[in-house]
C-alpha cells in the first residue's frame, strides 16, 4: 500500500515536472543541443523584432533570434542570431528585418546584398569579431510608418493651402478663392488616401485580387492629387490657375472612368505608382528650386526637405512592394 502510494506520488511529481520543463523548452523552440553557430547583425533600428523570432534563408527557417542589445556607443543595435551549424552562408549577405505576418512577429531574413541595392544596410566595419561573423542589417519601414508618411504629406499640403489663402485672398477675385477651395479638396483627397491606407491595413479581404484593387485605388487617388498639384504649379499665370484646375478635374475624371472600367493587372498599377512618384519628385524639386509663383512662396520652408524624406521612404517601400508583392498581399489578407 505504502509502496504503491510512494510510487504514485513520485510518478506524478516527476511527470509533471517533465511536462512543465520539456513543454516550456519545446514551445520556446530550443534546438535540443543540436550544434549551432552564432552570427551577429548590426543595424540602426530593429522595429518589432524580438528574441525568439525566426531567421530565414531562402525562405527556410534556419535559426532564431537569440538576443537584442543596443551597442555600448549607442550608435547601433546588435542582434545575435543562433543558426543551424550545417548551413553555410554566402559571403556578401546582409540581414533584412521584415514582418512575418500582420500579427505580431517579425523575422530576420538573410539575403544577398545585391538583391536590394538601394536599401541602406548598416555598413559593418569588422566583418569578423573573433569567431563571430558580423553582418549588416536594415529593418523595413513598417506599414504604420508609411501611413505616417502619407499623413505628413497631407499635412504639408494643408499647410500649403493655408499659405496660398493668406497670399492671395486680398488681391484676387472670387474665382481664385474657388481655386483655393480646390486646394482644400486636394488636401482632403490626400487625407482620404491616408484613411484608405489605414483601411487597407485594417480591412480584411479574402483574395489577392481585392488586395491589388485596394492598392490601385489608393494609388489612383494619390496620382490624381499629385497631378492637380503639378497642373497648378506648371503655369505661373495666376489667372490660368482656375482654368487649369478645371482642366485637371476633367482630366482626372477621364482617368477615373478609364480605371474604373478596366481590371488592371499588378504591373500597370506599379507603373502608375512609379509615374506618380516621379511627378511628386519633380514637384518637390521644383518647389525646392523656388520655381514658379507658388514655388517661391514656400521655398524658404522645410516643406521640401520633409517631402524628400517622405518620398524616399515611399520609394523604398514601393521597391519592396514590387519585389515582394506577396508580402503585402499577405498583409491585407493575412
Amino acid at each position: 500500500m505504502s509502496r504503491t502510494r510512494e510510487f504514485g506520488v513520485g510518478l506524478v511529481i516527476l511527470s509533471a515536472i517533465a511536462v512543465g520543463v520539456v513543454g516550456t523548452l519545446w514551445l520556446k523552440g530550443t534546438n535540443w543541443g543540436r550544434p549551432s553557430i552564432e552570427v551577429d547583425v548590426l543595424l540602426t533600428d530593429v522595429a518589432q523584432l524580438a528574441p525568439g523570432n525566426g531567421v530565414k534563408f531562402r525562405g527556410v527557417q534556419i535559426g532564431r533570434v537569440a538576443t537584442i542589445a543596443v551597442e555600448p556607443d549607442g550608435q547601433a543595435v546588435r542582434v545575435r542570431l543562433q543558426l543551424q551549424e550545417s548551413v553555410s552562408l554566402p559571403d556578401d549577405v546582409v540581414v533584412l528585418l521584415s514582418p512575418e505576418s500582420f500579427f505580431g512577429s517579425w523575422q530576420a531574413e538573410i539575403i544577398r546584398r545585391d538583391r536590394y541595392p538601394s536599401f541602406p544596410f548598416y555598413e559593418v566595419q569588422q566583418p569578423m569579431e573573433g569567431d563571430v561573423r558580423v553582418l549588416g542589417g536594415w529593418a523595413l519601414p513598417e506599414l504604420s510608418r508609411l501611413s505616417a508618411a502619407a499623413e505628413q504629406i497631407s499635412a504639408n499640403l494643408a499647410d500649403l493651402t493655408e499659405r496660398l489663402g493668406i497670399a492671395f485672398n486680398e488681391e484676387t477675385a472670387a474665382d481664385l478663392a474657388r481655386a483655393i477651395e480646390n486646394f482644400g479638396v486636394l488636401s482632403d483627397d490626400l487625407r482620404r488616401l491616408v484613411d484608405q491606407q489605414s483601411a487597407i491595413a485594417l480591412s480584411v479581404t479574402s483574395s489577392a485580387d481585392s488586395a491589388l484593387t485596394e492598392i490601385e485605388l489608393a494609388t489612383r487617388v494619390a496620382r490624381r492629387s499629385f497631378e492637380r498639384i503639378e497642373e497648378l504649379l506648371t503655369d505661373v499665370q495666376i489667372d490660368s490657375i482656375v482654368t487649369n484646375v478645371r482642366l485637371a478635374s476633367g482630366h482626372i475624371q477621364d482617368i477615373a472612368e478609364d480605371l474604373a472600367g478596366s481590371s488592371d493587372n499588378f504591373a500597370t498599377t506599379m507603373g502608375r505608382a512609379d509615374s506618380t512618384l516621379a511627378r511628386l519628385d519633380r514637384l518637390s524639386a521644383r518647389v525646392e528650386a523656388g520655381e514658379g509663383t507658388l514655388g517661391r512662396l514656400f521655398a524658404d520652408t522645410t516643406f521640401a526637405v520633409r517631402a524628400e524624406g517622405v518620398l524616399g521612404q515611399l520609394d523604398l517601400l514601393l521597391q519592396d512592394l514590387r519585389e515582394n508583392p506577396r508580402r503585402y498581399v499577405r498583409l491585407s489578407i493575412f
Binding site: 506524478v12 511529481i13 509533471a16 515536472i17 512543465g20 513543454g23
Partner: peptide
C-alpha cells in the same frame, strides 16, 4: 502547495 502545481502542469499539457 506541492501537488497542486503538479496537477495543474499536467492539466495544462493535457488541455493543450
Amino acid at each position: 502547495a506541492i501537488m497542486f502545481p503538479m496537477v495543474v502542469l499536467m492539466a495544462n499539457a493535457v488541455g493543450i
